[in-house]
Design a protein around this nucleic acid. Structure first.
Lengths: 231, 231
DNA sequence: CGCAAGAGAGAGCACCGCTCTTGCGCAAGG
DNA sequence: CCTTGCGCAAGAGCGGTGCTCTCTCTTGCG
């Protein structure tokens, strides 16, 4: 089905890639809301209607860009993490957080696409899930590793939250203590709160030394999920 | 100039309000990106060009909606806080966080407007700052109160961050310890990470008992800024 | 080598933000 | 009371959008 049996198929793949590339360029320049099929077509020197041979709608093109964005972020984190693979868990957590921040700052519009306000009327298809999960896998791996070495302090857990915590753990990481899973999910959301505030300019005139600030906050997040202090 | 000398001025005020209301309705239905002057005009039964008598551009209308959103959120939080004015600081923090979450869940599109991805090509004017500060004032008041009662534990602060911490404290709350200011700003961003993830659907199939989860996370945030445990 | 399938072009629909001009009607001033 | 000036709405129009439909022409597969 896929593996280029034929020049036709190969040309199709190339044009598809060119479209995505032009779209990504436009995304970076203007943002998702201003992504325009006509402008992409103009840039490629083809009629706007011709694009519909490759993407059935603007939304489908957006989906492709979303998946690419998740993959780009995931790959950035994986690469950064690989270099610190043998560092202590807390250090690996920091590395991942910082690579996420760096990626987000370098690709603000793509970040907005995946962690910003959802595009109204657009429902992300399940196709995006695997790409979106890459980062999470990485983090849970770190926690599992720490847990295996018994280097994980159990965060406190409100009594009333225990059933939900156990449900979440069963779904996400059955081999980790529910306390850790809950703390991790919260830290996850909080991490993207920090990154989002910075990327979206909410720290303007508030935080100046953002790198250090982020590093500090992420350190404290690590502690909140039970990862021992380290740097 | 302003104070209703004449039916003319009053009509103007009413029409302005009607436009904002219709726009808000459309915002809730379609999102900020799809907010269209023509649709608003259609809904009000007037020519699209007539709207420009009231708002010089779509962006100005957006600005008005943004200010209203900040005010609406601020007022919700102030009302909730007033009812708990004499509770211990940690409780007041919880109340504010929960009112912010409740407001955000009830006004997702307005939330996206002020804490989501920035609208491309739109630069928020300084006019929005006062409205945006209402919530922050409230929180700093709580911290000041706790500090006055010596009920504030100093959060740890990375040595390298101290200069920045002192700069931030001087800018934001000179009467609070820099450690607390830094922790508060981080908690602030983290809070909106939690709220944003919930509002934008990122917790779908991950967290089910979101109310309790949020409450738990916010409790831990309180502790992270030095507010003593309480409920 | 013939021909169906695929690719692109172009016109057209309904919508968008925004501008400029025109003309109506209200309200205050003489 | 009448008139005049101004606030306001409307309409046409510009350049843009996503998307559809039809038509032509190329191309590479059987």
């Amino acid at each position: 089905m896929s593996t280029a049996h034929g020049a036709r198929a190969r040309a199709r793949i190339e044009v598809t890639a060119a479209i995505k590339e032009a779209a990504r360029r436009q995304l970076a320049a203007e943002g998702a809301a201003k992504l325009s099929l006509r402008a992409v077509a103009r840039e490629l020197g083809m009629a706007s209607s011709a694009l519909y041979r490759y993407f059935p709608s603007r939304d489908e093109l957006l989906t492709a860009l979303i998946i690419d964005a998740y993959d780009s972020l995931g790959e950035a984190a994986e690469t950064a993490h690989a270099e610190a693979a043998h560092a202590p868990p807390a250090r690996r957590w920091t590395v991942i957080c910082e690579s996420a921040r760096t990626w987000a700052l370098g690709h603000p519009h793509e970040y907005a696409l995946i962690y910003g306000s959802p595009v109204p009327g657009y429902k992300a298809p399940d196709t995006t899930v695997p790409a979106a999960s890459r980062l999470a896998f990485l983090v849970f791996d770190i926690l599992r590793d720490a847990h295996r070495r018994s280097a994980l302090a159990l965060p406190p857990l409100a009594a009333g939250l225990r059933p939900e915590a156990e449900r979440m753990a069963a779904d996400l990481a059955p081999d980790l203590p529910p306390e850790v899973v809950v703390a991790m999910v919260a830290a996850w959301a909080e991490l993207f709160g920090l990154v989002g505030f910075e990327v979206f300019g909410q720290f303007h005139r508030v935080v100046e030394d953002r790198e250090r600030f982020f590093r500090h906050a992420v350190d404290r997040l690590a502690r909140s999920v039970g990862l021992p202090a380290a740097s």
